[in-house]
Amino acid sequence: MSIFGRDYRKVKNYGPVKRERCNNCCNESTFQLQKLSTWFTLFSIPIIPYRTNYLLVCPICKNYEEIDSSEFLDYVDLIQSQKESENQLLSSDGYITESGAIYRTETQLNFIRQMKEIEMEREKRNSSNE
């Protein structure tokens, strides 16, 4: 029975961030942002994290690229801003799941963005005419 150990790893997936070609499998895909924490354990219970790695992971071959913490934080901010902008675009006419979440296709979201831009241009023209 092991009393001390350092083999417990916790992976947190933040979602898709960057579309590029993978150096390993040569496929173009959207890389996933992940945070990998390695913990010191006592009687197989994780106690203290002693190492954290920030990774961009290819969803196809699972090859990864390690990034620094400042770049990681920039990507997290990007993900948060994308989620906020998508939440602003949602309305009751979307696809509603059993849990109450509303989902739209990328085409629908692009159409809504274009309509919002057209509406903003009309408002600017009307305010300049007055």
Score class of each variant (00 low, 15 high):
M1T: 04
S2H: 08
S2Y: 09
S2Q: 10
I3V: 15
R6K: 10
R6T: 08
Y8S: 02
K10I: 01
K10N: 12
K10Y: 07
N13E: 12
N13Y: 04
G15M: 03
P16M: 12
V17S: 04
K18I: 07
R19G: 01
E20P: 00
E20I: 06
E20W: 05
R21T: 12
N23L: 01
N24K: 12
C25G: 07
N27V: 03
N27W: 06
F31Y: 07
Q34G: 00
Q34F: 00
K35Q: 14
L36P: 01
W39K: 05
W39G: 08
T41R: 05
F43D: 00
F43V: 05
S44K: 12
I45V: 13
I47V: 15
I47C: 13
Y50K: 07
R51Y: 10
T52M: 07
T52G: 08
N53W: 01
N53E: 14
L56G: 03
V57Y: 01
I60C: 05
I60Q: 05
I60E: 09
C61G: 11
K62T: 13
E66Y: 05
I67W: 01
D68L: 02
D68M: 01
S69R: 11
S70I: 08
E71H: 02
E71I: 06
D74R: 12
D74C: 02
D77M: 11
E84I: 09
E86K: 09
N87S: 14
S91V: 04
D93H: 07
D93N: 15
G94P: 01
Y95V: 08
Y95T: 12
I96N: 08
I96E: 14
I96F: 02
E98Y: 11
E98R: 13
S99V: 07
G100T: 11
A101M: 05
A101L: 08
I102F: 00
R104T: 07
T105F: 09
E106C: 02
T107D: 14
Q108Y: 05
L109R: 09
N110I: 04
I112M: 06
Q114E: 14
Q114P: 00
M115Q: 15
M115E: 14
K116L: 11
I118F: 11
E119Q: 14
M120S: 14
M120C: 01
E121M: 13
E123W: 07
R125N: 15
S127K: 14
